[in-house]
Nucleic acid binder design. Sequence first.
DNA 1: CTGAAAGCGCTTACAG
DNA 2: CTGAAAGCGCTTACAG
Lengths: 341, 341
Amino acid sequence: MASIHDVAKEAGVSVATVSKVINHYPDVSEKTRRKVKNAIELLRYRPNVIARGLVTGRSWTVGVLINIPFTNPYVSMLLEGIKTALENSGYDLMRLSARLNDPDYSFIDHCQSRNLDGVVVFGVEKDHRSIQELIESGIPTMFVDTDATGQRAGNITTDNRNGVHKAVRHLIELGHQRIAYLAGIPGQPVNESRLAGYLDGLKASSIPYREEYVVNGDYSYDSGIQGTKKLLELAQRPTAIVCTSDMTAFGAIHAIEAQGLTVPGDISVVGFDNIFEAELFKPALTTINQHIHSIGVKSIEELISMIKSADYPPPVVTEPSSLIVRESTARCPEPVSGDVH
Amino acid sequence: MASIHDVAKEAGVSVATVSKVINHYPDVSEKTRRKVKNAIELLRYRPNVIARGLVTGRSWTVGVLINIPFTNPYVSMLLEGIKTALENSGYDLMRLSARLNDPDYSFIDHCQSRNLDGVVVFGVEKDHRSIQELIESGIPTMFVDTDATGQRAGNITTDNRNGVHKAVRHLIELGHQRIAYLAGIPGQPVNESRLAGYLDGLKASSIPYREEYVVNGDYSYDSGIQGTKKLLELAQRPTAIVCTSDMTAFGAIHAIEAQGLTVPGDISVVGFDNIFEAELFKPALTTINQHIHSIGVKSIEELISMIKSADYPPPVVTEPSSLIVRESTARCPEPVSGDVH
DNA sequence: CTGAAAGCGCTTACAG
DNA sequence: CTGAAAGCGCTTACAG
């Protein structure tokens, strides 16, 4: 690769002058600008972003820390949004090989040694030391689905609470009273707000909360199976199950059918996420739609705004959620007897 | 961040010496090594990878060019493999915001200005100028599913041809003779070898090739729907359809059922990829399994070998494929009448 | 309008 | 075993 010195020599000017035309400084005569441009063309010169970054302190790269498998459809959609927003921004995306479980590893050291301009974090538990260190470091940060903030850190989430509330209301309107909830990982902000939505929904119709109707999981297909097995063993089994993710809902449906029961004939199931497969599944899944792609796009747009201006206020944005009714929910099969309350 | 100068001052030595202990040079006395290590500890110093890269010419980052949406399950699995292999390698992954359609854009310029140590490319048509430029540039490269090679460029693919051949054989064993093929994008190496496998399968049983039984698509769900519609309009419609991807197979099944026909009752369908959803789908999909995760892992392992040693021969690796029989294929419903041949 | 010089944070011969 | 110096490819005051 030709360097800036080669160009300077070729054009018969100083490297300072070459730098000025590259960076569109106004105080360069048209004539030397021409000469330089020609030399650049001739040598196919491209400025070295790395070297530039060393002096300007900007790397034109944003880092991403995603502590969840890429095979999770939610992650895929998020990444797709991130990618879209990055497209003509001039920034590239770096996926850090973070060793979060290694006590000697420091995520911010990693970011700083890479000169990252900003970072988006997803899927890290809120109490992981990295979160706090990141906030203190002053590196522009956007947290996805984690309600952390800081001087230079904002966050973006779906309106999880309302989403689950809507799901519960929908089931109640269909006559269900025995509504269970297959939750996510306790302590995670996402999980807490969804659980709150579940409780909101019950309370709005004065349905008492039953501890045995809430079982935790990890958003996976498998935890849908396991959780549902437990629910089906209950003396009074639920007639509807709200799930913390579509994958979990798929698992739930599988487990229900494995018992010879049907969805939605015997039990209604609703998911959360509205991944592409929700529509393909049989029965097509009633679920809560999240604007995941949009969350990806906005996380980057906001991050770039923060990078560009030190006093851009760190945003806290909530994306709406909505209920998509399909085939996995139906009227409660038998009128609920009085003993439920 | 503390710099190497700060450490040198703190330890009372020169920066050269600090550099030597960082890089584990043997010729440093134990005593000064101690002093330096303490200073590093004290200042929480971490070497700047960027600055180091400027002088060593290595960036410890590998680039990835993926010209297919992340929401494609195949891509997700590939990325997951790539991520796994990178985990403790010291390398980070950079996803380049490549503007492949912009004539002023050059992918290798991009790679070079970022100082990338190597790159894995996936989903770029073989005749795109970037491929050739990349090969000529001498940047260590691994192509996934593209049979390009070069001085410093290897590739890795699934045994596509055999995979489809097995699918066809399976259908023939079930009594099918009218076997259609929903292909991918013409000209892409993956497509050509799969098509060859289809022809192999027919030929092995002396079933004549019918042009109208092959329709091209783009691996998507939608192209499965469109392609199948065409097949169903044929005077003599196929009794089995082999698809170039699982997503396309899902689309095919949808289109078949939309006509009031059943799978596999009326028509058998087989996919390609064996994505996670293949098992969940109803009917569970008979498909060709690819070791996608393994392809991701190996592409990085081989790439790193090439980076580390200039004379590591660029590998050409083929991963096996295998048929997974599930519920979407069954015996051919009606004995095929003589007119087929 | 142009260029010499210092510096970003490192590494690497080389001399002592 | 240690350090002064040059250099990686750039940008940025500053002087002229």
